[in-house]
């Protein structure tokens, strides 16, 4: 395959561009780190869901959700190539680095979107495929094209896109949506603002330079810090709701409560951070801990569910 593109030719008319993009560059378009989080939370949704799914079908479901999430990442990189080129965090992405053309990324993203949704629908069920299609649309169109550059509430609403995977995983097993899957959705949804605003605080200049209205640039550091604490408290509360609703054990509830308190403690550290702090160490610590928090909460939910299932099976055997 030699990608020849004469629309982006530099120089005289009729010149062609021969791509030097590697398979790894295309893989980078899928935002692998975000994809790993999506795979993990979708797996949690599948494990937690009542009922049974054949391991092969479950594997295909996870693969489709991962590829769908990756496709929305490619569409995001296609649209945001102009601002990615300016921000230090994103300047080395394949499009601003000149390895992949925006048109190639768009075609790649659209193709993978269509394939992942169709295969999920045919192999698993059409509700989960519909949710995946909505997630891709929400991330690429609602968040990237519309909200990101127009409101400081961009990641609050846009965070829904990253929160759907456990709900898709749940729908893949049960064929429906229930209160439990909505709680799993809310855990990631409420976790997203403190996670991203912590990043936005120490990358404020980057976002400001490209005109993306992130909370710290538009409303100021003080308002952002207060909002971080509010969302951290809400995240901590929703973290223990699985126990309150009876689909997780008390042991999980205690674990989630402790993690939630640590999350709030880190957010209060950010709140106490002096205005204009150059190092922003508390914000960096909160950002790092937020990633650990989400992995720990979903891991705990899965372990708790597996232990409860084994306990039940052992009880029946006796």
């Amino acid at each position: 395959m030699t990608v020849i593109d004469n629309h982006e030719a530099i120089g005289s008319e009729g010149a062609v561009r021969l791509s030097e993009a590697t398979a790894r560059d295309f893989f980078e378009l899928l935002k692998p780190r975000v994809m790993s989080l999506v795979v993990f939370t979708a797996l949690a949704g599948m494990v937690m869901a009542p009922g049974h799914i054949h391991p092969v079908i479950g594997f295909i479901a996870i693969l489709c959700i991962a590829v769908g999430a990756g496709a929305s990442g490619a569409l995001n990189m296609w649209y945001d190539a102009d601002i990615d080129a300016v921000m230090t965090r994103t300047a080395s992405r394949p499009i601003p680095a000149g390895k992949i053309l925006p048109g190639e990324a768009l075609a790649f993203g659209l193709t993978l979107s269509a394939f992942s949704v169709c295969i999920l629908g045919v192999v698993v069920n059409w509700l989960s495929a519909g949710l995946l299609a909505f997630t891709i649309f929400f991330y690429a169109v609602i968040y990237t094209i519309w909200l990101k550059r127009s409101t400081p509430q961009n990641i609050v609403i846009g965070g829904a896109a990253g929160a759907f995977p456990p709900m898709i995983g749940w729908a893949a097993v049960t064929g429906g949506v229930s209160v439990e899957s909505i709680v799993l959705f809310l855990i990631t949804f409420l976790w997203t603002p403190p996670h991203f605003w912590a990043l936005a605080l120490f990358k404020m200049r980057d976002y400001g330079a490209v005109g993306v209205p992130m909370m710290p640039n538009v409303c100021g550091e003080a308002v952002t810090k207060t909002q971080i604490v509010i969302y951290a408290v809400l995240t901590a509360i929703i973290g223990v709701v699985p126990t309150a609703l009876g689909f997780a054990s008390t042991v999980y509830g205690v674990f989630a409560a402790v993690l939630g308190l640590i999350f709030i403690w880190y957010s209060l550290g950010v709140h106490r951070m002096p205005e204009g702090d150059a190092r922003m160490l508390p914000a960096k610590k909160l950002f790092a801990f937020s990633i650990l928090y989400l992995f720990a909460i979903f891991s705990a939910l899965m372990i708790d569910h597996l232990v409860a299932t084994l306990w039940l099976a052992a009880g029946k055997a006796v």
């Binding site: 395959m1 030699t2 062609v16 021969l18 791509s19 030097e20 993009a21 590697t22 398979a23 295309f26």
Partner: peptide
């Protein structure tokens, strides 16, 4: 005819294998 550079050949081969 266009002649590919070694880098272009290498990347094309990589993409073909991945596909």
């Amino acid at each position: 005819l266009l002649t590919l550079t070694p880098a272009q050949k290498k990347s094309r081969r990589g993409r073909n294998i991945a596909l």
